[in-house]
Computed example of a mutant assay.
Amino acid sequence: MAEIYSQKLKHEQIQYIEFLSKDIVQAKNFYTKCFGWKFTDYGTAYTAFAGDYVEGGFTYGEPTNGTILVVLYSEDIETTKSKIISAGGAIVKDIFSFPGGKRFQFTDLDGYELAVWTE
């Protein structure tokens, strides 16, 4: 993920948004035409995008309301995870590795699911 970023990474900022798409090629074409987003494919099931003020990705799935995933960056993923647990959040996917680093996913007190990543 880090190679597509044009901005400085800031600890615990909202940094990345993931969408579900039933047709990633169609999504890429639409957002390229509308907003000029640039895409980087990671295999056939995931593509990352970067625009002037937004970065994120598309993964295969059936889009429904509430399926956008907000991703925060952390300089210290273990400490951020501990803070979330201490505040009453629930870890729904523990720390795992992916081609850009490591991440985990959690729900807040309202049930919203977010993710935290690190390089």
Rank of each mutant, 00 (worst) to 15 (best):
E12Y: 07
I14G: 10
Y16M: 09
I17F: 07
E18K: 04
F19L: 04
F19N: 02
L20W: 09
I24N: 05
V25D: 13
V25C: 10
V25M: 12
N29K: 14
N29D: 11
T32A: 05
F35N: 04
F35T: 07
W37Y: 00
T40L: 12
T40F: 10
A45S: 11
T47R: 06
T47V: 12
A50F: 11
A50T: 15
G51H: 09
D52S: 14
V54P: 00
V54E: 11
E55M: 12
G57A: 11
T59E: 03
Y60V: 15
Y60G: 14
T64K: 14
I68T: 10
V71G: 02
L72Q: 10
L72F: 15
S74N: 00
S74E: 01
E75G: 06
E75M: 06
D76G: 08
T79W: 03
T79N: 10
T79Q: 10
T79C: 08
K81G: 06
S82A: 15
S82G: 14
S82Q: 15
S82E: 15
A87S: 07
G88A: 14
G89N: 04
G89H: 03
A90H: 14
D94A: 05
D94Q: 01
D94I: 06
I95Y: 05
F96L: 03
F98C: 10
